[in-house]
Simulated scan of single mutants.
Amino acid sequence: MPAPRPASRLTSRPLSRRVVVDSSLSLVGVGVPTWLASRGGWLKGAAGSSTATAATAATVDRAALTARLDQHRTTRGGTMGLVVHDLRNNARFSWRPYTNESLSTIKVLILVACLRKVQDTGVRFTETQHSQARRMIQSSDNAATDALLAWVGTPNVQRAAGLLAMNATVVRGGSAGGWWGYSTTTPADLVTLLDALALGTAVIHAGHRAHIRHLMAGVVPAQRWGVADPPLPESVYTETKNGWGPLTGGYRLNSIGRVTGDGRNYTMAILTRSPQGFAYGKETINGLSRIVHAALVLPL
């Protein structure tokens, strides 16, 4: 079956919005989710005050966010965890993180390693390799991944993980290491990878980072779930890569990406194991993404 055509890149510019709350304004009026605003102490002032007069320094009530995620997990079942990095204020939030098989999220790291090899050796990508890289990221083509991994070598992908400080990631591949999709990683490591692409890294230069992000922005519509869940507002711009597949202990569905616009700017990685297959797991991971996006009307 031919791969779906890549999604067109959104042209909306990221929005910039500062949430300012005054004691004369209702909580709903500033767009704070009801489940977050209804808890006491949802506002945190610079001096630790929970009064609305300190609201110019308002941040997410992490206890409320945790409770909402816990509630979602209880109603859905399975294993799940995430890490989100708010690039507006460099704050992070971690919820039930654990180690999971990467499935196709490892493809972003494979491409980083390939472009690192290009820099180190001076050997350029061929037209075929450019096509393989595009298909690997935008339509999750496994055959293209096999070819690029054979070219760069599994040890060099592991080396790239080390250079990026993805210290909990173990890269598989080749006859001795098993299938690359069974590489193991954590939400924190995947956010580290995303941050390197978004904010800069010495591992690959800016042009290569921009190319990877361009490919991640053009992932085919059918694979834009999780972090890039389509019900997010149209003003939102996303760069994403997902991974999924059946394994003992639950169908793996993982999602990584960056979200900008609608007043937000964050990177996030979500790892899950669904007890009832792909479709059910997709609904579960989409729910996690929407909860976090709603909460981030305020900075972390």
Rank of each mutant, 00 (worst) to 15 (best):
A54P: 06
R73K: 12
A196H: 05
P33L: 05
L87M: 09
R134W: 11
G29Q: 11
V30M: 06
P299K: 02
A206T: 13
E283D: 15
T51Q: 07
A202W: 05
F93A: 03
N100G: 02
S274A: 12
Y237R: 13
L87Y: 08
G31K: 01
V259H: 06
T248Y: 13
S183K: 03
N242K: 10
L300I: 04
T267K: 02
T201S: 13
L149C: 04
D61N: 13
R17D: 10
R18E: 13
Q158V: 03
A188D: 14
R258H: 14
I204C: 11
R258Q: 12
F278N: 00
D70N: 15
R172S: 15
G78A: 11
D195T: 14
Q129W: 03
A222P: 04
Y280N: 11
V21H: 06
G245W: 10
V60N: 01
S38V: 10
G243P: 05
G250S: 09
T272Q: 09
L232Q: 03
V84Y: 00
N286V: 08
V83W: 09
R209V: 13
K241W: 02
R273M: 02
S183W: 06
V84T: 05
V171F: 10
S16Q: 14
E283G: 15
G173N: 04
P299Y: 09
T75N: 11
N90G: 01
A168K: 09
T284Q: 12
H130I: 10
M1E: 12
A198L: 14
L253I: 15
G277T: 09
